[in-house]
Design a protein around this nucleic acid. Structure first.
Lengths: 288, 288
DNA sequence: AGCTCTTATGAATCATTGA
DNA sequence: GTCAATGATTCATAAGAGC
């Protein structure tokens, strides 16, 4: 039993208890070869990932040149598409870097190329990073947002909009202060929109659907490993695009944030990473 | 003479009083033909505009099909580039519409095409619309953000970052840091030229640079014109990319929000619109 | 528990220097 | 020339210490 969602999520807790505990699989290797070998076609309900950005993290992943990014990504997207269920979704967290004083276009190119590969570009969510990296330059301000591209293979993908509804009005802030005992609730308050669907019923107050702008802080001061996104981010999309018992895949799993989120929510998960070191890290983190 | 900040109201008022009152020119017609005929090459310091979106506002503008959007836009961008000063900027407010359940790619295509035309894609600001249009759909949430694309023709465009500084998030921290002698020394040394120094002396560290995410509510459209952007939006970019006395152009002026903002800030402005009815509207609005 | 205050740090970017 | 490495810049947040 790995879930501990916002305080009195009684119904959800019962549901999860009735299910077998969520499975977690970790594969070491490149997702391009691992995926077709180790994952059944059409068995994945949601892919959430933050791939290595172009020319970033060179010390860890070897770095992909911006001009080569699309050709590096496409064959991997192809195997991911085969693994995804017809009603599944693919959430891609990415942002183009600045090259020679202007934004590089590889993300734009990638969107176009993925569409040609058969993906539907359903929407682009905006992740507003409330605590973006500081710095000052003569020609730009701090970059405070990233793209969360939502792709699907069919028009009728699964979407559970009620599961991410947010309380309306001042009630939210007042209530959260009372509930701030646990880390989980703190995470939810950080997200500002991570409430489960049952909590709204439990409290019996008004709630509304969120928008396609997510306000979340990057995780700060965590251990020595690079944390891609805050756990609230995969949480939000897992609630939105899967049911308990579904399978979630992160083909560039890194420190395993997606797997943690999935397990907390009673979803099975698979993580893949090219670095054995990160696979070990994930296993350690999951034990907690 | 060229400095200008939100904090320096007194100085600003004096400056503006010393200048002749801002000029406003309104031209009726298509900017593609009006611009080369009526605007001197290189005379414009900033272009801020929200062009008719694809297939939107059909009743007013005739509507451009999404698939034809880029070819419609490009010749107009060409004349705008000729009108823009070498140190000028071009702010394009745009968002792709949903066609057949997915985002259309004409904005991505447009960015690519503008780069091929010689524009530099400096950055993409995110306009977070705090009060986005209500609605509910089975496969997406409310669209709560739009793109504010920043293009320039040269690497060393004009940018007055001090003019849009915002109060620091935590006032207590700012005040405390003010007491630290080392911090004051750091401020003075890093401020560099002219105005930065004055800010450091005057308001200490109570102001910080903003990010590339703008939080602004939409305004109800000015009577008779479909809702464009709030006046605070062009204001922000006019402060950021021009000095008093500079020339601001809106080639799709609509209800004239950009002209109002420019005049309020002591900048000269030019508005162009294909509809005589809107030109009349602008003239009325400017009298106020 | 609830404050206040301190400190460390995070998918960053540009200018400069040296090979 | 081009390219790679280094230093300087900067702020919202979490965690931790102290009361």
């Amino acid at each position: 039993m790995t879930t501990h969602t916002a305080a009195a999520d009684i119904t959800e807790t019962k549901q999860l208890a009735a299910l077998s505990p969520p499975q977690i699989k970790i594969f070491h290797g490149d997702c391009q070869s691992v995926t077709p070998r180790s994952i059944d076609a059409g068995s994945i309900d949601l892919i959430v990932t933050s791939p290595p950005y172009a020319d970033q993290r060179r010390s860890n992943y070897g770095g992909i040149h911006p001009d080569k990014y699309v050709e590096w990504f496409l064959p991997r997207a192809e195997v991911l598409r085969a693994a995804l269920s017809p009603t599944g979704s693919f959430i891609l967290n990415i942002k183009e870097k600045v090259v020679d004083g202007e934004r590089h276009t590889y993300v734009l190119d990638l969107i176009q190329a993925l569409r040609e590969q058969g993906w539907r570009w359903v929407d682009e969510y905006c992740w507003h990073k409330k605590n973006s990296y500081p710095g000052k330059w003569p020609n730009r301000f701090r970059d405070s947002w990233e793209r969360l591209l939502h792709f699907a293979v069919s028009k009728n993908f699964k979407m559970r909009q009620e599961s991410v509804m947010v309380p309306t009005g001042d009630w939210k802030n007042a209530r959260l202060r009372n509930l701030s005992a646990t880390d989980q609730v703190r995470d939810l308050s950080k997200a500002g929109n991570g409430f489960g669907k049952r909590i709204a019923n439990w409290v019996g107050r008004e709630y509304a659907y969120p928008t396609n702008v997510l306000h979340m802080s990057t995780e700060c001061g965590y251990k020595g490993h690079p944390a891609a996104f805050p756990v609230a981010l995969p949480q939000w999309f897992i609630r939105l695009f899967t049911d308990p018992g579904d399978w979630v895949l992160d083909p560039f799993a890194g420190s395993g944030t997606t797997l943690v989120a999935a397990s907390q929510l009673g979803r099975n998960s698979i993580g893949i990473d090219t670095l054995e070191e990160y696979c070990d890290l994930m296993r350690e983190r999951i034990v907690e």
